[in-house]
Design a protein around this nucleic acid. Sequence first.
RNA 1: UGACCCGUGGUGUAAUUGGCAACACGUCUGAUUUUGGUUCAGAAGAGUCCAAGUUCGAGCCUUGGCGGGUCAACCA
Length: 565
Amino acid sequence: MSESSPEKETGVKRNFIHQIIEEELKEGKNDGRVHTRFPPEPNGYLHIGHAKSICLNFGTAQKYNGLTNLRFDDTNPSKEETEYVDSIKEDVRWLGFSWDDREYYASDYFDKLFDFAVKLIREGKAYVDDQNAEMVSSQRGTPTRPGAESPFRDRSVEENLNLFMRMRAGEFNEGDRILRAKIDMASPNMHMRDPILYRIMKTPHHRTGDKWCIYPMYDFAHGQCDYWEGITHSICTLEFEVHRPLYDWFIDQLRDSDYRPRQIEFARLNLSYTVMSKRKLLELVRDGYVKGWDDPRMPTISGLRRRGYTPVSIRNFSEKIGVTKVDGMIDVALLEHSVREDLNKTAQRVMGVLDPLKVVITNFPQGLVEQMEAINNPEDLSTGTRPVPFTREIYIEREDFMEEPPRKFFRLSPGTEVRLRYAYFVTCTDVIKDKDGRVTELHCTYDPASKGGNSPDGRKVKATLHWVSASENVTAEVRLYDRLFNDEDPANHKDTDFKEFLNPDSLKVLRGCYVEPSVKRAKPFDSFQFERLGYFNLDPDSLPDKPVFNRTAALRDTWTKFKDK
RNA sequence: UGACCCGUGGUGUAAUUGGCAACACGUCUGAUUUUGGUUCAGAAGAGUCCAAGUUCGAGCCUUGGCGGGUCAACCA
């Protein structure tokens, strides 16, 4: 062989699938081609688990200069909709992958699949079974007991052909007849016990309309589509492992050259605090527990997008978690770390106050609006600065003041001096309360010499506060999102009771917020400083309809810790 | 009384194909800091499910256990 390795440096971490591929490449299999596919069923929105599969399929092909197809596995018209195929395409694109013109549908192959079924019948490898679902199911046996053969198993080829044509013609009702492969009812592998190839479904298909009233099953479609598309590596999740012998059986009936696609299984992603089952996500959407598939609390790609996640962060995450056959549980902390890592470098900082407490700077001139200069991103000074208006009356976060500070509380309290970021040093002189004893206003004095946030005499302050001018600001509604689930591990709750673990605090609308959106474009972001609470992708161009506030776990933990002391 | 798959710190991944286990996240210290963030320095934490075997030497090989997962939809 030549010294030029077909492997490309893409920064993709080597995993067991790469190892398999490299061994095959050495043996010269499939003419050295690597061709993968991402095959979602369009019956829901893509979630973070799919992202792993997408990154794996596209990443693997890129690594070996191969191609990846996008293929919709649409063999069950009762569950699939065009809305879903559109959202899937958008999400894959957003993640940064391209399938060029290789967009396929299992339904594209319905004719070929039908012909293949006829071929199997002719060869005596498939038959029409007149039994109903219950009969078929009871004859299948159990994992430990062999099944029994159907009384219709040995029909003549002519009779099978005739019945199959009539199935297609719509002469029978749903459930009356099925087409089965004739393999082995005693096989220790349940999937080899005369699997069903076609069932009658008088449901219009989102692409083929009412052209068909019989539809192929997953097992009868997937491998064949792989074969016809020239897929070399059909990467799927662990639960399909037991399907592999059947996958191979169909390929054996089909192939006429050395080429053969190979199914390789990997462990699907499980995330702590997260429910990933499409059925459950659909339930959350349908029953109104969330506002939609793209609700920021959802683990869907579109939900994460609205929450402020970047494509890079999700790709990095997929890379970090690796690819194995070990069925594990990844800590969301790793996902959250991945966003922070990216956003820390790229997100523009803005200031904001969510729960405002008025502060009057008593020695600051009435009516004066002073423009302070704020850095857009301390991690990337090339992003420049922006002016932020400072006035005699400002708001600070209520949490940033404590009348009787506990040990280690460094922020504002009576008599202490703190820095207002990019503005001045201020000292609290008076605390104004209402008749119930609630603090309504603070009076402070500022040190005019500390403009910009540094005192010429070199004295230090222990805290830097975030603020907003009480008059020069923009207001909007802010929603604060927490994790959707607060149970230790809701993913483990297999049954419908998973909703019991919904986090009641997962969505709070905070009143009296001072944020910006389309309301006043004139002064965007000047007065928002969210970064103390986390990082936000809130630059004017990428702002969601509703500002989304991504509270990070790290900060929450810090707070919990602090409060305990 | 089945078939297939899996078993390395709290979590995830690695270990040049046999040379006494590394990295990331998380946790905990400390320093720096106009974000209690970031950055930097450091610490704790597994002897690789168990047992026997082969070997000078095993997380990697063999055998036997144990534990976990998947499979009995006319879903994918």
